[in-house]
Simulated scan of single mutants.
Amino acid sequence: MEEILTTAAQPAQRTARGVQTRGRIVSTAAELMRVRGVGGTTLDDIVRASGVSKSQLYSHFADKAALVRAVIEYVGERTVGGERERLGKVKSFAGLKRWRDGLIANNALEQGRYGCALGSLANEVSDHDVVARAQLQALFTTWGELFEDVLRRFQSNELIPADADVAQLATGLVAAVQGGYLLAQTAGDVAPMAAAVDVSLAHLQLLSNTDLAH
């Protein structure tokens, strides 16, 4: 995966222009990798698409691995940040159902074509880059903790039993979402994703006497 640059990278000056250029490189790389995959995206592709020179790219990133790690950070902030905002509002089964509907509707915009950006990155780089794997593990852990927070609120509101294993239930929700993304991507249809998430929500429902509409 790693693509070594022939010019030694120099530390980028932290000017406003430098920050803007680095940001453009990372956001462009993230979009290309989302569509083409990490392996299908070259540094030359990123240079052309971002409109920067090779020397500008070299000044910010020593090699492709360094750029991929920056992409993981960028994608992670967007993905987990968005989930933090959405899940932070969930205090009831009705709220959880609204979260589910938004998740499915958003993935339906492209017929589930590209899957989860974090999941796709994990599939491509986890076996080859221990630093990237640690980044991704931390992001998925944080995502799971957001679900745990939701479930603890459910416990406080007596929607699920106080002795329910929220860590285990949260892991199941993350797995349902990630597996759902993969199924939707291979099917070109969000229906399998909806089914996967619904099964996880139905399991939660079995722990409660509260209807999903409430």
Rank of each mutant, 00 (worst) to 15 (best):
A122K: 05
F93H: 09
R98K: 15
G119E: 07
T42R: 10
L43C: 07
S55Y: 02
A108K: 09
S126G: 04
R100F: 12
E110I: 11
G51E: 01
E83L: 13
G51V: 05
F93M: 12
G37D: 05
R48D: 07
G81K: 15
A117R: 14
A105E: 15
F147M: 01
L57S: 00
R84A: 14
V52T: 11
R78P: 02
E85S: 15
L146N: 05
S92T: 15
S126R: 10
L32S: 03
G144Q: 14
A65V: 00
E31P: 05
G76P: 04
H128S: 08
A105L: 13
G76M: 14
E145L: 10
G81F: 12
L118H: 05
K97F: 07
V125L: 01
G102L: 13
L43F: 09
I46Q: 00
V52D: 03
V35G: 02
Y74D: 14
D44I: 11
A138M: 10
G81Y: 13
G102S: 14
E148M: 02
G81I: 14
E145Q: 10
L139D: 00
A65G: 11
A49M: 00
N123A: 11
Q155H: 06
V131H: 08
Y58I: 06
G144H: 04
L67A: 09
S53W: 04
Q135Y: 01
V130Q: 11
R152A: 01
R133V: 06
R69M: 12
K91I: 09
D127V: 02
W99Y: 15
V80A: 11
T42E: 03
K64W: 10
Q135I: 05
L67D: 06
E145S: 03
I46Y: 01
A70Q: 08
R86H: 15
E77S: 15
D63K: 07
G51H: 05
G115R: 06
E83A: 15
L136N: 03
G119H: 02
Y114C: 08
A94L: 14
V52W: 06
V131G: 00
A70D: 14
G95D: 15
T41M: 09
Q135S: 03
A62M: 04
C116D: 02
N123C: 01
W99G: 06
A65F: 01
A138P: 06
L87D: 03
E31Q: 15
V47G: 00
S50P: 01
A70R: 08
R69N: 12
G82H: 14
